[in-house]
C-alpha cells in the first residue's frame, strides 16, 4: 500500500512538472535571449588581463559575485533517472546546466552595468556544494560565479 502511494505521488509530481515545466523553461530561454541581446555591449573574458583598461578615478576594478541554485523539474529528473540506467549523455540535464551558466553570466553583466562598468575579466564559474542530501530525489544545480569588473576604453570596444 505504501509503495503504491509512493509510485502515485512520484507520478503525480512528474505529471505536474510535465505540464508546467516546459512553460517555465521556454519563458526562461526567452528571458535569457532578450537580456543577452540587451547586454551584448558588456565585454567579457575569462583571461586574467585587463584588455583596454582605463583607470577611472571614481571606480577602481571591483569583484562581482553571483550565486545560483536551480531545480530540475520532477519530470526531467524522472527522465534523467531512467536514462541513468542505460548510461550516455543526460541531454535534458546538460541543457539545464547550460541555461544556469548563461543566467549566471547575465547576472554578472547586469551587476557590472548597474555599477557603471563596461567589461568583465577573469570570469570563473564553478559548481557549488550546498549540502544536498543524496537520499532525496530532487535534482538541483548550484553554481558560484565571479569576475572582476573594470572600465574599458571605448575605442577598443567591439
Amino acid at each position: 500500500m505504501l509503495e503504491l502511494f509512493g509510485i502515485l505521488s512520484v507520478s503525480a509530481l512528474a505529471l505536474v512538472a510535465f505540464v508546467w515545466g516546459p512553460q517555465r523553461t521556454r519563458a526562461h530561454a526567452a528571458s535569457l535571449a532578450r537580456r543577452e541581446q540587451a547586454l551584448a555591449g558588456i565585454f567579457i573574458t575569462n583571461s586574467r588581463r585587463f584588455d583596454g583598461a582605463v583607470v577611472h578615478p571614481d571606480a577602481a576594478p571591483r569583484l562581482l559575485n553571483v550565486e545560483l541554485v536551480w531545480g530540475v523539474d520532477r519530470f526531467q529528473a524522472l527522465v534523467a533517472s531512467i536514462l541513468n540506467l542505460f548510461g550516455g549523455e543526460l541531454d535534458n540535464v546538460s541543457q539545464v546546466m547550460l541555461r544556469v551558466r548563461r543566467e549566471a553570466i547575465l547576472r554578472l553583466k547586469e551587476q557590472a552595468q548597474k555599477n557603471g562598468y563596461n567589461a568583465l575579466t577573469n570570469v570563473r564559474i564553478a559548481p557549488a556544494d550546498i549540502g544536498t542530501d543524496p537520499q532525496k530525489q530532487n535534482l538541483t544545480v548550484a553554481m558560484v560565479a565571479s569576475a572582476t569588473a573594470y572600465h574599458r576604453a571605448k575605442d577598443t570596444l567591439r
Binding site: L13, V16, A17, W20, G21, R24, T25, H28, N65, E67, L68, V69, W70, G71, V72, D73, R74, Q76, V96, E103, A128, I130, N138, L139, T140, A142, V144
Partner: peptide
C-alpha cells in the same frame, strides 16, 4: 523544485 527553476531560498543562503 517540482516544476523546476531557480530555488531562490537556497540562492539567498549561498549569497
Amino acid at each position: 523544485n517540482i516544476v523546476g527553476g531557480e530555488l531562490s531560498e537556497y540562492t539567498e543562503l549561498l549569497t
